[in-house]
Design a protein around this nucleic acid. Structure first.
Lengths: 187, 187
DNA sequence: GTCTATATTTGGATAGAC
DNA sequence: GTCTATCCAAATATAGAC
C-alpha cells in the first residue's frame, strides 16, 4: 500500500505544480486544486495542514526532486559536456512541454507570494544555476565567467517562456534551447 | 479643468499598471486598486464600467503610449544606432526601476487572463519587437536575422527580470541591458 | 465624479461523520 | 484519508445619494 500512497501523493503534487504554473500563487485557488486533483478542500488540508503556503512549498520540493533526479541529472554523469547538455536540453523541452508550460520560478516569485515560498524559489534557482555553472567550468570556462554564463542561460530560458506564451508560439523557446551549447560551453 | 482631468486619469492609470505588474490579472484585486489609487470601487467602475478586464486593457494602452512616446522613441530619431540604443537602455532601466518592477507582458500573459487582454499583450510585444528589429536592420543586419535578434533581446530582458526578482538582486537585469548593443547591432 | 451601503459569489479554512 | 456541511472574510459588482 505504501507504493500506492506514494503514487497518489505524486499525482496530487503534479496537480499542484500544474495549477501554480498556470495561475501563480494568488490565482491558484483551492477550487482549482480540487478540479485538477479530484480531492475536495478538507482532503487537501489533511495532506497540507498549513494550506496554500504549504502546497506551494510542496510543489517546489517536488520540482527540486524532478530537476535533480531527472532534468539536470545528466550533468553529473560521465561523457563530454556537449553530449550531457544535449540530454539536458531534451529534458527541459519535455518539462516545459515545448514552451507551453510556465516555470514555477516565474509564477511563484511575485510580491503576492509568501516569503517562505519566495525563499524556496531562490534556492531552487540557485541549484539550477550552480549545475549549469558546473558544466560550463568543465568545458574550460573560468569560474567567474561560467557563473555569469549560467545565469544568462537560465534567463534566456525564462525569457523565452514569457515570449512564447505571449506570442502563443514556441519559436523563441526552441531557440533558447538551441542556444544553450553556445552560451555555456563554446567561444 | 481638462488638463487636471487628464492628470488625474494618468495617475489612476499609473496605479493600475503598478498593481497589475506586481500581482498579475488574477491577483490584482479592486481593494488593491483602491489602496493604490485612492478611489473606492464604485469610482473605479465609473471610469472602467466593464470592470477589471477594461482596467487591464487601459493599463496596457497606457504602457503602449509610454513605450511609443518615451522608452522606444529614440529609435525613430536621427543619429547612429548605437547612440540611440544607449538612450533606449537608459529609459528601459528607468521604466523597470533597475529591474525591481515586473513587466505587464509577463504578468498579463497567464492563462487566468481574459483573451481580450492577452490579445492586447501580443500586440504590445509585437510593437516592441518591431522597433528593435528596425534598429537592428539599420545597423546592417539582414531583415530575417534582425527579427530573431530582436526577439532574443526582448527575451533576455524578460528573463533577466524574472531572475533578478527571484534572486532579489538586479545584476542579471543590468547585464541584459548591457548586452543589448551586442545582441541587436554588432558581430 | 465620488461616495456609502449593499448584493452576490468565491476565497480560505474547519468540525465532525464515515 | 476522504467526505458533507458550514463559517467567515474577501472578491466582483451595482443602486442610489450627494
Amino acid at each position: 500500500m505504501a507504493k500506492t500512497d506514494a503514487a497518489g501523493a505524486e499525482k496530487v503534487l503534479g496537480s499542484l505544480i500544474s495549477v501554480f504554473r498556470n495561475h501563480g500563487f494568488e490565482g491558484a485557488s483551492l477550487s482549482r486544486f480540487t478540479e485538477s486533483s479530484g480531492l475536495v478542500k478538507p482532503s487537501l488540508y489533511h495532506r497540507f495542514p498549513r494550506g496554500k503556503e504549504e502546497m506551494a512549498l510542496a510543489a517546489l520540493t517536488e520540482v527540486d526532486r524532478i530537476f535533480a533526479t531527472h532534468v539536470l541529472a545528466p550533468i553529473d554523469c560521465e561523457g563530454d559536456p556537449s553530449q550531457r547538455l544535449k540530454l539536458v536540453r531534451e529534458r527541459l523541452d519535455k518539462f516545459y512541454e515545448s514552451g507551453s508550460q510556465a516555470c514555477l520560478l516565474e509564477t511563484l516569485s511575485g510580491v503576492g507570494t509568501p516569503p517562505s515560498v519566495r525563499a524556496h524559489v531562490k534556492n531552487t534557482l540557485d541549484f539550477w544555476i550552480a549545475k549549469f555553472t558546473q558544466l560550463s567550468k568543465e568545458a574550460g570556462i573560468p569560474a567567474k565567467e561560467a557563473r555569469v554564463r549560467a545565469e544568462g542561460a537560465v534567463a534566456a530560458i525564462e525569457g523565452a517562456l514569457v515570449i512564447s506564451r505571449a506570442q502563443e508560439n514556441n519559436r523563441e523557446f526552441k531557440r533558447s534551447l538551441e542556444s544553450l551549447s553556445g552560451r555555456l560551453l563554446n567561444r
